[in-house]
Design a protein around this nucleic acid. Structure first.
Length: 452
DNA sequence: ATCAGATAATCCTGTACCGC
DNA sequence: GCGGTACAGGATTATCTGAT
């Protein structure tokens, strides 16, 4: 019996052949190849061109759809010039978009002097004017000619991406909303990666730090105080990680960065890998961090991961290095993948874990200089604050774990420290910081009582 | 500037495997 | 058996690049 997928592919192939039989193109494996393919594309483009040049209105829409980058660039220019602020998202009926164009004209932006295309559309009885779309900004290449339709049609994806680039509208006769509106959607310069999540993360961080500082004011002596200082440092490390991610230009990179922080999502050797609830929490956190839904994040991650393994295969097959921009960021998957295949348990000091611990350590250490409360090097030398912290955490969780050797080497000492930071940060991410703080506070009070 | 072809990116589907 | 996941690969679209 022919597998259903094969049947489907065969069906698709047949459909393609039928579709293009008219042009006598040759189809191989459901795809047009060689010059025939180019000829087909040209025909399609010609058809598209004919269709889209049918009316000025359609052409204006086409212009709008095909020049996301230019619009985006000009959008920023105009935003700088403070003459438009209202960003509309693509939540409204996109299917009626084309028909609703009622006005089309060329104009020059009064502020940045760029020659623009102006569009007016009507939606739900309200006339909306576009921002000034440039017709001569940047290099005018094949893809930037406003009245040519060369690839595809103004489908949902194109429209969505154009809207993602930021499109500005205002109602007829009404000025753009004033600048400085705190609404997220009203900020034209808002980076794509910026989201309320960071506020949440930072808020968690800040609240935790404040709680610790407050406790430290009450009890600045003894072992508990050291633990609290450590928590502050860990929070700083966490803040550093988020800040680092915040600076990422691309949200994909940010997503990778965040997923990388959670081996439970990709490494079968991890204890939490089988914990669906935990993974859901992690995804939720990541989703908040990148300003997307959990589903979107999962889907995107799947695509990214798929792409990585595909590129990997190609690289191995051809010995040609992958040019994919995210490729190098995903090399951490190799370790996890091997372990999954061999089905062996995660070694205690596997490279993957080690590198992550080191990364945490690095981030935490990097932020020490900017911390208000820092443990002095002498303190670090005299006593390992991590040990006490781990003790308290272990006491809290009721687990016993021999995480530090009696006389650890410098490397293992650092790794243990990093491991403890990792555990604490994980704890924070699981929203258990409040509980930890309560325990630490009570311990601080008891210790203070003892000292008195 | 325009075009054609190559390549990258994305979406989608199917299969195998695993745990429940 | 069912649901979830990893993995592989086809189809399609977007983008890049070199030639004209």
């Amino acid at each position: 019996m022919v597998p259903s997928c094969t049947r489907l592919r065969k069906k698709r192939t047949e459909e393609t052949e039928v579709t293009h039989r008219e042009g006598k193109e040759k189809v191989v494996g459901g795809r047009l190849v060689g010059k025939k393919k180019g000829r087909r594309r040209k025909k399609e483009r010609d058809r598209e061109k004919k269709r889209w040049t049918g009316s000025m209105h359609s052409r204006s829409v086409r212009c709008m759809v095909t020049h996301g980058a230019l619009r985006s660039a000009h959008f920023k220019l105009c935003a700088r010039a403070e003459h438009m602020t209202h960003v509309r998202k693509g939540e409204e009926g996109e299917q009626d978009f084309e028909k609703s164009v009622i006005e089309y004209s060329f104009d020059s932006c009064k502020i940045c002097r760029v020659k623009c295309t102006r569009i007016c559309v009507e939606r739900k009885g309200v006339k909306l004017f576009s921002n000034k779309i440039p017709s001569n900004l940047g290099t005018l290449g094949r893809d930037s000619k406003p009245d040519l339709t060369l690839t595809g049609k103004p489908d949902k994806m194109s429209l969505t991406s154009s809207l993602r680039g930021g499109f500005a509208w205002r109602e007829r006769g009404k000025p753009f909303p004033p600048l400085g509106t705190p609404s997220r959607d009203s900020n034209p310069n808002r980076p794509v990666i910026d989201s309320p999540v960071y506020c949440k993360s930072d808020a968690l961080d800040r609240v935790t730090s404040e709680a610790v500082s407050s406790t430290l004011k009450q009890s600045s002596r003894g072992r508990v105080a050291q633990q609290l200082r450590l928590v502050v440092r860990v929070c700083a490390g966490l803040r550093s990680l988020y800040t680092m991610a915040k600076l990422k230009v691309n949200s994909d990179e940010k997503l990778i960065e965040l997923v990388k922080m959670h081996p439970a999502l990709y490494d079968r050797g991890q204890e939490d890998y089988k914990d669906a609830q935990m993974k859901e929490i992690i995804w939720k956190t990541i989703g908040e961090s990148v300003g997307k839904t959990v589903g979107e994040c999962k889907k995107r991650w799947k695509d990214i991961r798929d792409n990585y393994f595909r590129n990997k295969r190609k690289e191995l097959a051809s010995t040609r290095l992958s040019k994919w921009r995210l490729y190098k960021l995903l090399t951490f998957l190799d370790q996890a993948r091997r372990e999954k295949r061999s089905q062996c348990s995660l070694p205690e000091d596997s490279e993957g874990e080690t590198s992550q611990q080191s990364e945490y350590l690095l981030n935490v250490q990097n932020t020490e200089d900017s911390m208000d409360i820092i443990m002095s090097p002498s303190q670090l030398k005299s006593e390992d604050p991590t040990a006490s912290c781990i003790d308290s955490l272990q006491a809290e969780s009721g687990r016993s774990q021999d995480t530090h050797a009696s006389q650890p080497s410098v490397k293992s000492h650092s790794l243990n420290k990093a491991a403890s930071y990792y555990k604490v940060v994980e704890g924070i991410k699981k929203n258990r910081i409040t509980e930890r703080m309560r325990i630490l506070r009570s311990m601080a009070r008891e210790e203070d009582d003892d000292l008195q």
